[in-house]
């Protein structure tokens, strides 16, 4: 008899906790302005440990991969030398452009134009942990509100766009990668800025998206940059088109994009404070 009561009691506790959890899920499913105390506290406590272990793990995996990739190094070296040559040519062109720009800026000042200043101050952050879930691409970084990072700060790597800050704690923050299913980025094609569209993530490391204009001329190998719509500032490189197709109803042109950032081997990122929209 007492056993039966005990059994019912535990069933009841589990049911009550289930209902409470469902309520919590419902409450927290929307984007919140601030983290609650529990989250901040837990993150503050865990992130130093994660940082130590992650640094160790990265050193080990880098060491292991460098041993296996020894044969590739020579090939890579030749490729890099070629790239340096082409970059130097570009640098000369860029210098010429810069001189022109200086002149134009001078003219602008003379004509009393209001200067738009991009006062982004990038902060270097380490990735301390990645979400254990296989469905979402979320990771945590080791800087937070103490360095002025807020919700919707833009996260970059040296070679492209990484994602945005979802929530910031005191010395840590959650970042959603652009390859996450729920993330979307508005892009334009570097070659021609009139061709714009929207990219979203998938369960693999590729991005899929569509162009607003179904007649847009996109070819495999086109480079994509952010278009400045939404929270990402204009002109950050995203990746390269690897596949172009028409959707099944022939109304949309869809593209598959490979991001330049290797999300599996990402250790250090740059974080920039969010764009402030000034109403004047």
């Amino acid at each position: 008899m007492s056993n039966k009561i005990f059994k019912n009691k535990s069933v009841m506790i589990v049911t009550i906790v289930t209902i409470i959890l469902i309520i919590i899920i419902g409450l927290t499913s929307r984007q919140r302005e601030e983290m609650n105390i529990l989250e901040t506290w837990a993150g503050n406590a865990a992130s130093p440990f994660q940082r130590v272990v992650n640094t160790g793990a990265n050193i080990i995996s880098e060491g292991a991969s460098s041993i296996f990739s020894f044969t590739h190094l020579k090939k890579e070296n030749i490729e890099l030398e070629k790239e340096v040559e082409s970059l130097q040519e570009e640098l000369i062109k860029a210098r010429l452009n810069r001189d022109e720009l200086e002149e134009l800026r001078g003219l602008k000042f003379a004509l009393n134009y209001i200067e738009e200043e991009d006062d982004f101050e990038p902060i270097v952050a380490n990735i301390v942990g990645k979400s254990p879930s296989n469905w979402f691409d979320i990771f945590t970084i080791d800087v937070g509100e103490n360095k002025g990072i807020k919700k919707d700060s833009v996260v970059l790597a040296s070679n492209g766009l990484v994602g945005r800050v979802y929530e910031a704690g005191e010395n840590w923050a959650k970042v959603i990668a652009i390859i996450d299913n729920n993330s979307s980025v508005s892009f334009q094609i570097l070659r021609d800025r009139t061709f714009q569209g929207i990219l979203s993530g998938s369960i693999t490391n590729e991005l899929t998206g569509y162009l607003f204009d179904p007649m847009a001329e996109v070819v495999v190998g086109d480079k994509l940059i952010t278009s400045g719509l939404g929270i990402y500032p204009h002109g950050i490189i995203i990746g390269e088109v690897i596949e172009v197709a028409m959707s099944s109803d022939q109304l949309l042109k869809t593209v598959k994009v490979e991001p330049y950032v290797n999300f599996k081997r990402l250790n250090k990122v740059l974080v920039m404070a969010p764009q402030i929209i000034r109403n004047e």
Binding site: L21, I25, T28, A42, G129, F136, T140
Partner: peptide
Amino acid sequence: VIFEKVIG
């Protein structure tokens, strides 16, 4: 608490 968007 540490990683997910939705808690619970």
